[in-house]
Design a protein around this nucleic acid. Sequence first.
RNA 1: GCCGUCGUAGCUCAAUUGGCAGAGCACUCGGCUGUUAACCGAGCGGUUGACGGUUCAAAUCCGUCCGACGGCGCCA
Length: 435
Amino acid sequence: MFDDDSFVDISEILEGQHTGKEVSIRGWVHRERDIGNMLFFNIRDPTGTVQATIAKDNFNEDKFDNIKGLLVESSIKIHGEVAEDERAPGGYEIRAMDAEIVHASDDFPIHEDQSVEHLLDNRHLWLRSTKMRDLMTIRSTVFGAIHEFFRKEGYKEFQSPILTPVACEGGSTLFPVEYFDDEVYLTQSWQLYAEAAIYGVGDIYTIAPSFRAEKSRTPRHLTEYWHAEVEGLWLDNDDLIELGEGLVLHIVDKVLDESFEELKNINEEGLEYLQNLEGPFPRITYEEAVEKLKDAGMDVSYGDDFGVPEEKKLTSMFEKPVFVTHYPKEIKAFYMKRDDDDPSKVLGYDLMVPHVGELIGGSVRETDVDSLVDRLEEEGEDPSIYEWFLDTRRYGSVPHAGYGLGIERVIMWLCNLDHIRDAIAFPRTPNRSRP
RNA sequence: GCCGUCGUAGCUCAAUUGGCAGAGCACUCGGCUGUUAACCGAGCGGUUGACGGUUCAAAUCCGUCCGACGGCGCCA
């Protein structure tokens, strides 16, 4: 009965494609109701959930008794006739004529009462939930959209080592890794290697994990996150803004196009905002941002980095994501190029959205060796460790720029998630490294 | 790193504020041929996070530690 490969997706049954026909399905018991001589199962596969009914009268008695005792999440194959029936959830059901237990489940640890902690402890099982399935589907679309965008723009994919000897963002904490008799670190960024590669390979991008050993207890930080980074030759700050805006808009279009149902399940209220989103995004300078915040009554002064309250206030002033440019050099990384018009500021930007904060951070790169050494020393770094990086400025350097985008933050923004950990299957946070 | 909340059955939570540790769900058994998180009846289920202290008596009060969650800071 089940050797003929005639299995259909449950979604097809729910679309009415098999009504009146005999089909087989295979999936997991989502719920079971036993009213004695009749059993009702909600059967789930990766495409949907449908009700299966099993009546004792027209079923093998031994099989009926076996199936009667099945627990939630048991895997099963069912063969039967599809019927349209308004009594069934979803409007369709399969009336079983035969069934085969693939694996009888133990008592499943997740039931209707679920705490955040319990679901995180059982993330390996919670991935079976509709919510996580939808989120992982959207995530897959986002990754695909990033590759598609950069390749379409003529960028090559380039990989850098995960194990690295140096920091990238001064001050950020690194995860040390034993490397035989030496010590190296898990990478925080692909950027420094990218800057070495562009002179030969040309415009490049990557999607790779980055690691931060900061004990950031917030809804927007992971210690291991996926980072889309890009580095392009001859780009100025305006080019880089366009490249960032283009990527974000492409991701939004792609998710609306390919994962609309999933997005609707997860964030129906946000659909309209995303559907109406188009460029250009507003652009303001750091100085203007400070003025706006002061006007709004906030206690900030020029030179302060924005905290959560400032970020919240600022993003709430715009209908779209907002580019904030020309930060003071003191609050930005050593590799950012100073603005020739005002050397106290750097040519770079943060792209900020409400609720999530910074989606993208990017800059034109400083190409002057002396300036780089000065900035490294100001941050208390030892420039000698960066010799290989400084070499990229000694041999025919050219203007270039790049940015990094936090992929889980983008997903958090698209899906209006309360916490970034739901944007990744197995989140790594300061308090959680398993499962 | 700082501030706060919490930790009781497999899960979600009670325990009249110091006086016999309980309920719902799950699970097991029994009943039921149209259920919708089915329902009805019974049963199983505990070192109250750990250690110490106060007390005739501690889940409850005090101390230390552990863990989780929430917020701030740091950052993407």
